[in-house]
Nucleic acid binder design. Structure first.
Length: 271
DNA sequence: ATTCTCACCTGCGGGC
DNA sequence: TGCCCGCAGGTGAGAA
């Protein structure tokens, strides 16, 4: 479920509450996307200091190391002083002095990985190739535009793959391309500087709007305090195949790109 | 080097 | 009602 907005909303919903917590126990369920990377009990006694986000990863700094969490396609976190008994899809849990942090992930594409720091080889493998953070000052138009010019892939794929800009997943790629008036199948390198600028703005606009709306809740997503998002109610094209475009009433179309669905308005969006 | 396809896993909705 | 198929918010590995 989680693209940048959902991960960021999740982060904000428990970052302050967990700061300073001492880890009392670690519970591990079924295997996730990546091995944990050590003995989970190594975390016991460590203090959670801060919660950061890099792309779609959450980075929990402790006084001795770094815990990487990823929500995959179906993951969500809860942080509360008390929680119901762990269910079949609760695969990772930190019991702390300030509450229980629990990862629920039915499909298990998510991950919980412990490393000693961002220079750790495993951390570098997971984070090292990630592109610019679209909601930070490091998101520079000139770099973005140059990256588009250098790619022969479709613009939808470039937005999705995270090498140029991180955090844009299947929902927000379609939405940003609609806002920019660009067809998802357009070759990235063929996009003019003017339209690249529109896309650069659109990416930031749609991600900011989604964060403001608490993210999208398509199935069971909720932030760590249990609240759902509602951006899915304001998508312009995503999930709206055969429905009328809100701008021009033309029916929204769907196309498969790299086994993912892309939605677009054939009237409002051009190559 | 870059680009494309596949695999990982579970659940749900639609069609028969 | 039950079964089978396709699809779902991600992404690294390996092939081309």
């Amino acid at each position: 479920m989680p693209e940048l907005p959902e991960v960021e909303v999740t982060r904000r919903s428990f970052a302050d509450a967990i700061a300073g917590a001492k880890i009392l126990a670690v519970r591990v369920g079924k295997p996730l996307r990546w091995p944990f990377g050590g003995d989970p009990d190594e975390l016991v006694g460590q203090i959670v200091t801060t919660v950061r986000r890099r792309g779609k990863y959450l980075l929990l700094d402790t006084d001795q190391g770094l815990l990487l969490l990823h929500l995959g396609m179906s993951g969500s976190l809860r942080f509360a002083t008390t929680l119901p008994p762990a269910g079949a899809h609760d695969h990772f849990e930190l019991v702390t002095t300030l509450g229980i942090l629990r990862l629920n992930d039915p499909r298990r594409f998510g991950a919980a990985v412990y490393v000693h720091g961002e220079q750790d080889p495993v951390a570098k493998k997971l984070l090292g190739h990630l592109g610019m953070e679209p909601l930070s000052d490091e998101f520079v138009f000139q770099t973005f535009c140059a990256g588009l010019k250098a790619s022969r892939s479709s613009i939808k794929q470039v937005l999705l793959n995270g090498r140029l800009v991180v955090g844009v997943g299947n929902i927000y790629a379609s939405e940003a391309l609609f806002l920019a008036g660009i067809l998802p199948t357009t070759t990235a390198a063929s996009i003019s500087t003017t339209r690249a600028r529109q896309l650069y703005e659109a990416v930031q606009q749609v991600l900011n709007a989604a964060v403001q709306s608490g993210g999208s809740t398509l199935r069971n997503f909720s932030s760590a305090d249990g609240s759902a998002g509602h951006f899915q109610q304001q998508t312009k094209v995503y999930g709206r195949e055969a429905a009328p475009c809100h701008t021009c009433a033309t029916l929204v179309c769907m196309v498969r790109q790299g086994q993912r669905s892309s939605y677009y308005c054939p009237c409002c969006q051009q190559p």
